[in-house]
Simulated assay, not measured.
Amino acid sequence: MQLLLLNQAYAFEKKEVGDKIHFALQDVVQKIYRDNKTNLPINNQIKKVTEDYYIVNVDDVFEAEVLEYYLKTEFQKVKLDVDFEYAIYDCASDEMMYGSYISSNVEQSEKCENCFEKKEGLIYYFAIRFPQLKYSLIGSLGQYWFFTGILLLVLVIYVYSVFQLLRQKKYAELQTDFINNMTHEFKTPLASILIASNYTQNQPEIKNNPKLSKYTDIIITQSQKLNQHIERILTVAKGDGKWIELDKKPIALKEMIELIKENVLLKTNKQSAISIEIPVQQKVMADEFHFYNTLFNLIENAIKYSGDSPEILIQTTETAKGLDISIADNGPGIEKIHIENVFDKFYRVPREDKKDIEGFGIGLSYVKKIIDLHYWKIKLENNLKGGLTVFISVPKKDCI
């Protein structure tokens, strides 16, 4: 539709310019007859050969200087600001005598003296051509070109967005396939390994052989660790789904964190000290399952990255906007250049490789996802005396 509109605008502009040229040349002929004091013939004296080339049959004597003056004057009257050049037929030499090139610009195009052809059967006539007429017509449609350009830009952006959406859809399907395959291909054989290992561990032959018992413990421990990684990946993958809905209900903060403390201490071999400074009556409205996983991830990370003797302080602070839950550790902290990226999926802060800090970089991305779904805020800050503090800001509407 835009191209059709542009074409119609071009045709209208071309017709308007053609009419201006015709009327201007007609006035030039009338003035020549007026100067010669002769009667103007009725027949059409102006012939349009092409869009930019005209032949004017004056059928009376005229001078080149007078013709040029009249052409300039009449074109100015109709506000026709285009370059033109003309030639006059000389009956003595039977040739077209080139007149001049009239340009509104300082820099004019090259003359084309050979562009004028004789017209048989005429004696007193001149020819005029407009070499820049086509470019002038295109230039006069500036606003149409502008809107057409904007439309094409929007169209390109739209098509690009559609391709991106299709690509994301493809990735989502791959992710779904990945989850399904992982559930079937990993968890099924892993469950079989754990069942067989637990059965084997209880056999008298294994219990009485320290080496075999040690190897069996390694199999069970590593299988359990692999199972935890798989569960975490599945949890994060499922948490990305837009279909997830939170089941909010009142949760006693201290009671939940005490439970998390017990479970975390059972998993770690470190001599960890976890202090909880939270009023017993303090509650928040949250999804119990996901909020538990969120706090568990944060507290587990605090212990994991705090060296051999972790000291964790968990407390709440009431603010004008609601409640702040803070989890502070005595670890090395995180460099500023990495703090903004720690919530990105699969992003891991460069650290010394150790067995107790293995991971896929998906725990904090899950935490951020759950916090965002609650419409809460989370941020990380390095402590002045070392360590890192995680702040979860709960708005007043979710505080009880």
Rank of each mutant, 00 (worst) to 15 (best):
N7L: 07
Q8P: 01
E13Y: 06
K15S: 13
E16V: 06
I21A: 04
H22K: 14
V28G: 01
D35K: 12
P41Y: 06
N43I: 00
K47Y: 14
E51S: 09
Y54S: 03
V58N: 13
D59M: 12
F62L: 03
V66P: 00
Y69G: 02
L71T: 07
L71N: 13
K72F: 06
D81I: 11
D83Y: 10
Y98V: 00
I102F: 14
S103R: 11
N105R: 15
E110T: 12
K111D: 02
G121W: 10
Y124G: 07
Y124C: 07
I128S: 05
Q132D: 14
L133D: 09
S136Q: 08
W145P: 00
W145T: 00
F146H: 13
G149S: 07
G149K: 03
G149T: 00
L152Q: 08
L153K: 04
V154Q: 08
V162Y: 15
L165R: 15
L165C: 05
L166M: 11
L166H: 10
E185V: 08
T188E: 06
P189D: 03
P204N: 12
P204V: 06
I206V: 15
N208V: 05
T221Y: 07
Q224A: 09
Q228L: 10
E231D: 13
L234P: 01
T235A: 13
K242H: 11
E245Q: 14
D247I: 10
I251S: 02
A252K: 08
E258C: 13
E258Y: 15
I260T: 03
L265F: 07
L265V: 02
K267F: 07
T268F: 14
K270N: 02
E277T: 03
I278Q: 09
V280S: 15
Q281D: 12
K283S: 04
H290R: 15
T294H: 03
L298S: 08
I299S: 08
I299D: 05
E300F: 09
K304H: 04
S306R: 10
D308F: 03
S309G: 02
T316Q: 12
A320P: 01
K321G: 00
L323I: 05
I327A: 04
A328Y: 11
K336F: 01
E340A: 02
L373T: 05
H374F: 13
K379E: 11
K379V: 01
L380W: 15
L384F: 04
V390N: 10
